[in-house]
Amino acid sequence: MSSNSTEFEAAAFRRLLEHLGQRSDVQNIELMTLAGFCRNCLADWYREAAEQRGESLSKEQARELIYGEPFSDWKAKHQREASPEQLAAFAEAQKSHT
C-alpha cells in the first residue's frame, strides 16, 4: 500500500460525499436496501472514528458533515415518505442479511 493511502482514502471519501450530495434523489432506504448502508451509517462511522481518536462529535454534527447541511434541512428538502414497496424491499433485504 502506498504511503499516501490515507490521502487517497480521504479523497475517495470526499468524492463519495460529493456524489451522494448530487444524488439527493436516491433515498436512504434505497441505499440501505441495495447496499446495506446509507448516509446516516456514514455519519455514524465518521463519529465512531472520531471518538476512537479521542474527538467528541455529536450525531447531529456528524450528519451535518455527511449531508453538507443540518440533517433536518436536508430531510425537509429531499426525504420522501417511504413507499410500501420500498418498505417491503427493505424488510426483505434485512431478513437476508441477518
Rank of each mutant, 00 (worst) to 15 (best):
M1P: 05
S2H: 07
S2K: 10
S2N: 11
S3Y: 09
S3M: 11
S3L: 12
N4E: 13
N4C: 05
N4F: 10
S5W: 11
T6V: 12
T6G: 05
E7K: 12
F8V: 11
E9M: 13
E9W: 04
E9Q: 10
A10N: 07
A11N: 08
R14L: 04
R15T: 04
L16N: 07
L17V: 04
L17H: 02
E18T: 09
E18D: 12
H19R: 09
H19N: 10
L20P: 01
G21I: 01
G21E: 00
Q22Y: 06
R23T: 04
S24M: 03
S24D: 13
S24T: 09
D25R: 06
D25L: 08
V26A: 02
Q27T: 05
Q27C: 04
Q27K: 07
Q27R: 09
N28W: 02
I29A: 00
I29F: 00
E30H: 06
L31D: 02
L31E: 05
M32S: 04
T33A: 06
T33L: 01
T33I: 03
T33S: 06
G36E: 03
G36L: 07
G36P: 02
F37D: 02
C38W: 00
C38G: 15
R39E: 02
R39N: 03
R39H: 08
N40V: 08
L42E: 00
A43V: 03
D44S: 11
D44I: 09
W45D: 14
Y46S: 05
Y46K: 11
Y46M: 09
R47F: 05
A50F: 06
Q52A: 11
R53K: 14
R53S: 13
G54F: 12
E55C: 13
S56W: 08
L57T: 08
L57G: 00
L57Y: 03
S58H: 14
S58W: 07
K59L: 15
K59P: 01
E60A: 14
E60K: 14
E60H: 15
Q61F: 02
Q61V: 11
Q61R: 14
Q61E: 15
A62T: 04
A62G: 07
R63E: 08
R63P: 00
R63H: 09
R63L: 13
R63Q: 12
R63V: 01
R63W: 01
E64M: 09
I66G: 00
I66N: 00
Y67G: 02
G68N: 04
E69Q: 15
P70M: 12
P70K: 13
S72W: 11
D73W: 07
D73V: 14
K75E: 12
K75D: 10
K75T: 06
A76F: 08
A76P: 02
K77A: 12
H78P: 00
H78M: 07
H78Q: 08
Q79M: 09
Q79N: 09
Q79P: 01
R80A: 14
A82T: 04
S83H: 10
E85Y: 07
L87R: 15
A88Q: 15
A89E: 07
A91I: 04
A91K: 09
A91V: 04
A91P: 01
A91L: 09
E92W: 05
A93R: 01
A93K: 01
A93L: 06
Q94N: 14
Q94I: 08
Q94L: 15
Q94G: 05
K95Q: 15
K95L: 15
K95M: 13
K95C: 08
S96G: 10
H97A: 14
H97F: 09
H97I: 08
H97D: 12
T98L: 14
T98S: 14
